[in-house]
Amino acid sequence: MDPFVVLVLCLSCLLLLSIWRQSSGRGKLPPGPTPLPVIGNILQIDIKDVSKSLTNLSKIYGPVFTLYFGLERMVVLHGYEVVKEALIDLGEEFSGRGHFPLAERANRGFGIVFSNGKRWKEIRRFSLMTLRNFGMGKRSIEDRVQEEARCLVEELRKTKASPCDPTFILGCAPCNVICSIIFQKRFDYKDQQFLNLMEKLNENIRIVSTPWIQICNNFPTIIDYFPGTHNKLLKNLAFMESDILEKVKEHQESMDINNPRDFIDCFLIKMEKEKQNQQSEFTIENLVITAADLLGAGTETTSTTLRYALLLLLKHPEVTAKVQEEIERVIGRNRSPCMQDRGHMPYTDAVVHEVQRYIDLIPTSLPHAVTCDVKFRNYLIPKGTTILTSLTSVLHDNKEFPNPEMFDPRHFLDEGGNFKKSNYFMPFSAGKRICVGEGLARMELFLFLTFILQNFNLKSLIDPKDLDTTPVVNGFASVPPFYQLCFIPV
């Protein structure tokens, strides 16, 4: 058959498939802009700032609406009420993970971030239990974070109060905490193996944040037939998995079943207990991918939040002064901060919360999916439909947070200066898919920041009023603009 005829037939089939998918069930789905064949609503979305586009569309179609990214149908949730109703009140029905062709290629359905069903539930339950087990290797997770915080302070001392970009050092600290939990080992910041790991993690975040990856996920045929950065992403992930597998083999040879040292040991012990169960989800494949998931999810998000926190503290020296006064009063100079201190430091706690609220790190979270046909607000959402959640619409709700575009710790303080919780605080998402490392991340943010401010004054290279804190939105995360500062020993 003539190649031209084959091409026309293929394009015609794709067009018909697109029209059929977009028209099927439209009477039951939430409203939304009319999609174009094949490309859907992509032309109506700013790929570099999806969150802003969703906010604009919500003003037209309401808090629940339908979009098509290519052939992929998505239902968008915008605003606290619908997000709570879906992710919390109907948590089980909305607990699936959205379709990610690239991740599915890399992870093969294993791990904790992109798995679904029984596998996801069992691996998540085990990971939560293990991360909360403060007795691994007779050292609590808090001990590990405190140790890394001391190392971080010593690295900052080496800058000798000269101007520096904190990106690298602030990236090393949370990565080392995860390494300590998974591998029972922290690395020197100049260790070549550690630097290679950091390089792969950072490069992957840069790649994932590009519009090209959005295109690959919406048109998965590209993955096999086109060159691009997605190939580098898959190569980096394969490198990390190979490295983790080597460490798993080392653990198998040296493990003491009665004295687990780290996450890998705990997983291997669980595998041993379930070795007679042919349906067990505790396999080497799941261990390797879960460890890679924890490394990827637990490094860049925390380091970016820390980097943004220091920029905001530079911009608002009056806030920094209040935090340091609270540190001096509650902790002093002669001991290290600990998590028990947080309950006695409402202002510092409010500042950490406000940093996370203000920066809105992951504006749309990772997409969910419905696990069955769901009736939601008089609409029928078919099983498997991807759910896109606007966390921006919750964290920047102007009824809950007056002047949401302003950095103001009073958003989390009552009139008496006591810490005030808010149900709208969802930087880790909400419901059954809430970030498994939430507790660890909150511990790291509090301890790293208090250790830094206990030991250093922060000095800006320019007038604080002239510092730009506008986030650089890159399609996946909101990151701070480049800046330098000086760490002046107190």
Rank of each mutant, 00 (worst) to 15 (best):
V76H: 01
A161M: 13
L128A: 12
I223F: 11
Y358D: 00
G431F: 03
F168E: 12
F446C: 00
E438R: 09
R125Q: 15
L310R: 01
A161S: 13
P211A: 11
F412D: 00
I39M: 08
G91P: 13
F100R: 08
F407K: 00
M345K: 00
F425T: 02
L87N: 03
L87R: 02
N286G: 06
I264Q: 00
Q356P: 01
E85T: 08
I362H: 05
V319E: 06
K421N: 15
D397R: 02
V490G: 07
Q278D: 12
I215E: 04
N423G: 11
K121F: 09
L311V: 09
N133H: 11
L16D: 04
G475I: 10
P260T: 05
N259P: 04
L445W: 00
T364G: 08
F168R: 13
I387W: 00
R105V: 08
T302K: 00
E92I: 07
L287T: 04
E199C: 14
P404I: 03
R97Q: 06
K420Q: 12
P30E: 01
V436P: 08
F226A: 11
V153D: 00
T210H: 09
I434P: 03
H368C: 03
S115G: 08
K28D: 12
N231M: 10
K28V: 13
S254T: 15
T301F: 13
N217I: 09
V177H: 01
F168W: 13
V394H: 02
E444T: 05
T348K: 01
I331V: 13
I462D: 14
V394T: 05
H353M: 05
N259R: 11
E203A: 09
E93T: 12
G79F: 00
T348G: 01
I257E: 12
S140H: 08
F69M: 14
A297I: 04
H353S: 08
I207S: 06
E93N: 13
R139S: 13
L16H: 01
L16M: 14
R357S: 01
T283M: 07
N56R: 15
I359W: 03
S209G: 11
E415Q: 12
V288T: 09
Q484F: 05
L29H: 07
L413G: 00
L361E: 02
F4M: 08
E154N: 14
D408Y: 05
R21L: 11
K59G: 10
E415D: 14
D256A: 07
S478R: 13
M129H: 14
I269G: 09
I215V: 14
K421S: 15
R144P: 06
F110I: 06
D49Y: 08
M136N: 14
E272M: 10
M255H: 02
I223P: 05
T167Y: 15
I387V: 08
H396V: 03
F451N: 13
D265Y: 00
L43Q: 07
D143L: 08
G27C: 14
P337G: 03
S422F: 02
N423H: 15
Y379W: 11
N378I: 02
E415Y: 06
N398K: 06
I387N: 00
Y483M: 07
L458P: 08
K399W: 13
